[in-house]
Design a protein around this nucleic acid. Structure first.
Length: 664
RNA sequence: GCGCGUGUAGCUCAGCUGGAUAGAGCGACGGCCUCCUAAGCCGUAGGCCGCAGGUUCGAAUCCUGCCACGCGCGCCA
């Protein structure tokens, strides 16, 4: 909405600078557009006069004044004014702006990324229930997906399933060694509800079992070999168990409005020999070399670029990363290289595909397979997966070093462009506040000097995602019932679910990504202040005003929009002056904020923006009545502002995966 | 040791590529429901922006050094 105006203004100023001062186009500095501290000063502020002062040897004030005089008429701009300090302040045509945003079609977003982008997120080990750390990953990943789509970029969302790793191996070892279960018994257990909770505890028991006797790790090694090799009973059981848990994870994510396009199974990458192909490429490019002797004898290794930032000082050996172990198995980095090559369409191999259940929105979910489906006639043709122009991997910051290696290896085999378009979307972990850790019964004495308590999934510590959601839904339901006694139970439950989702998602997105979240259960359960429900509440109130307006005399949004054309602009000043205008202008900035969020990968700016908009609306709501306003033109201008704010706030919430209930 | 990140109000955090009087939430204190939902609004108190230099017309923001804390540096993922 506002970006078009920014672009037109920049272009005009650039033109005038060339005309006024004889600058060549390349010599014009970037024209930064800011927002003055209050609307009476102006609506947009240009600081280019400061930049040019030195080059032109003129006072900023003089340059700003000359620009203001020469600017000329521009659609949407009422006037330009230079300040003594040297700012060039732009005042917009308020009435025209409101008429345009209400009546016009949605402005085409700038973006320009018309080619496919892949976003990989969630990627929870399928051996136990999801916890709050996974919620941060999914909330960030899904919001990124929605932001990219908002900018009209086609996005493919992938969820990587590590079904052949250590964690799944440990669970199967646990079933066999600790519980003496047959494959049939395991399958039966896996069909039970909350099977992921059962595995959560079992995993902790297995960890303790290993710790009691290191020799037991041999069982893990044997299991891991079975899983990687495939084609045996253990591998079949593991895939079954993993599939059950993945379905439970998907159900958890569904509660948060998170959906995917494709599940990518590591087992399929292995069995389809993606790695073998990638290995040939790496060898041919000389990116990996064989170590005949030394501590890494028998391994294929890759040199670590010092810029990857993790070479151990002094140790020459440690500057080489093992890709293929001396026993011939491939490390995680190797598998990831093969997968990343496939994402870009650079691997001369592909998966088989099949449908994997339905998702709430109707968006089809596909899964990779090793074999073609038995009866392909029943199945719609799979889309063309992979072949992306850019790839975002949403993984916490502890894997920065590995992601750097991944990028480096792409460059090393001659894919510099793809290396540039491989983005590690890193974020910090979720720990627990001391109060919450104590409430859960964890011993925090060892970490008493730290601001937070880090928990261990291996030891069965942490807050399960579904437990958190259950508590939030219960708390929200109590509130909804207290406020809306006449609401049927089913509607109250739906509303409570929407509120819980918004509370969780907003909580996970509001922090900047490189901040450790010290998760506090009481804080998360609070629906007041800077929270998802606060935003929903503002949108609900806006909806109520419009609903009542329509119920009273049939004035709906279309009628409001139509009426604006004939309304005198003077009445707009009486309707709320700069207060109303500040709200309207702020609401128009969503496209600019979305752009900034994607450019910087800092999604918290979206959360902060939406909160600020809700705050501004609530203030307006208390100060300026709409329904009760007797003057028709004033009432309609205010109603128009409400329509605009409600639309934009609803869109902002949608981008964060949050819905707006009818009542709350 | 090396690399990355963080240090802003009592607590939890914003502060975008340097720009107009350093903000928000929670907590504290004081107000506002015959008025579009009080999950709300208004007001008060509270800040050597870790420390020291430097660059600049201008620094919480950029550079250097130091201090504190976190994470990473596996033939784990």
């Amino acid at each position: 909405m506002i970006l078009q105006l920014h672009a037109a203004l920049r272009e005009r100023i650039r033109t005038r600078l060339v005309e006024l001062y004889g600058l060549d186009a390349a010599g014009v500095p970037d024209i930064a557009i800011q927002y003055p501290p209050n609307r009476d000063l102006g609506d947009l502020a240009v600081t280019v006069a400061f930049e040019l002062a030195r080059i032109l040897r003129k006072a900023p004030r003089v340059i700003a004044q000359e620009l203001a005089d020469a600017l000329g008429p521009l659609d949407g701009v009422a006037r330009a004014a230079a300040t003594p300090a040297g700012y060039l302040n732009i005042h917009l045509d308020r009435a025209a702006h409101l008429r345009r945003v209400l009546g016009g079609p949605r402005a085409a977003p700038p973006g320009g990324d018309s080619e496919k982008t892949i976003v990989e997120h969630t990627a929870i080990n399928p051996n136990k229930a999801a916890h709050i750390g996974h919620l941060r990953n999914a909330a960030l990943g899904d919001t990124l997906v929605r932001l990219l789509r908002f900018r009209d970029c086609p996005v493919e969302t992938q969820n990587y399933i590590d079904d052949t790793g250590v964690q799944v191996a440990d669970i199967i070892v646990g079933f066999q060694q600790l519980e003496d279960r047959t494959p049939e018994q395991i399958r039966e257990l896996a069909g039970q509800p909350r099977f992921d909770y059962y595995c959560w505890d079992l995993y902790a028991r297995v960890t303790a079992w290993y710790e009691a006797d290191n020799g037991r790790l041999a069982a893990r090694a044997r299991m891991l070999r079975d899983l990687e090799h495939g084609g045996n009973a253990n591998a079949a059981t593991a895939r079954f168990v993993a599939d059950r848990i993945v379905r439970l994870h998907l159900a958890t994510m569904d509660r948060l409005n998170v959906e995917y396009d494709l599940l990518s199974w590591e087992g399929d990458i292995l069995r389809l020999d993606f790695w073998a192909t990638a290995f040939d490429v790496l060898k041919a490019a000389g990116a990996v070399t064989y170590q005949p002797d030394g501590p890494q004898a028998g391994c294929w290794v890759m040199p670590i670029d010092p810029e990857a930032g993790a070479d151990a000082a002094g140790d020459a050996e440690a500057r080489w990363k093992v890709i293929v172990r001396s026993d011939g198995t491939v490390t995680y980095v190797g598998k990831d290289i093969a997968y990343q090559l496939w994402k870009f369409g650079l691997l001369d191999k592909d998966f088989q595909y099949g449908p994997h259940g339905s998702q709430r929105s109707g968006r089809p979910l596909w899964t990779t397979r090793q074999d073609a489906p038995d009866d392909p006639g029943e199945i719609p043709p799979a889309p063309r997966f992979g072949h992306a122009r850019a790839v975002y991997n949403v993984i916490d910051t502890r894997q920065s070093y590995l992601q750097q290696l991944l990028k480096q290896s792409l460059a090393a085999i001659g894919h510099a462009t793809e290396a540039e378009r491989s983005f590690h979307y890193s974020y910090e972990m979720v720990a627990l506040s001391h109060a919450t850790a104590r409430a859960l019964g964890y011993d925090t004495s060892a970490e008493s000097d730290r601001p937070f308590v880090e928990v261990s999934g291996r030891r069965g510590q942490g807050v399960k995602a579904d437990d958190l959601l259950d508590r939030m839904v219960a708390a929200a339901r109590a509130e909804v019932r207290a406020r809306n006694a006449e609401l049927p139970a089913e509607a109250a439950d739906r509303t409570a679910a929407m509120i819980a989702t918004a509370a969780v998602r907003y909580f996970m997105v509001k922090y900047t990504r490189n901040k450790v979240i010290a998760f506090d259960i009481d804080e998360a359960l609070s629906f007041e202040g800077e929270s998802g429900p606060y935003l929903q509440y503002a949108a609900v109130r806006a909806g109520n005003i419009l609903g009542k307006l329509q119920a009273r005399d049939g004035t709906d949004e279309a009628a409001i929009t139509a009426a604006l054309e004939a309304l005198p602009a003077e009445a707009l000043a009486e309707a709320g002056g700069s207060d109303l205008w500040a709200l309207v202008l702020e609401a128009s900035r969503l496209d600019e904020i979305a752009e900034q969020a994607v450019r910087t990968l800092e999604l918290s700016v979206l959360a902060k923006y939406a909160f600020g908009l809700a705050q501004a609306f609530n203030t307006f709501y208390h100060r300026y009545p709409v329904i009760a306003e007797e003057r028709r033109d004033v009432r309609l201008w205010r109603a128009a502002a409400v329509v605009h704010v409600r639309r934009q706030l609803t869109r902002a919430l949608e981008l964060m995966g949050c819905e707006v209930p009818a009542r709350m």
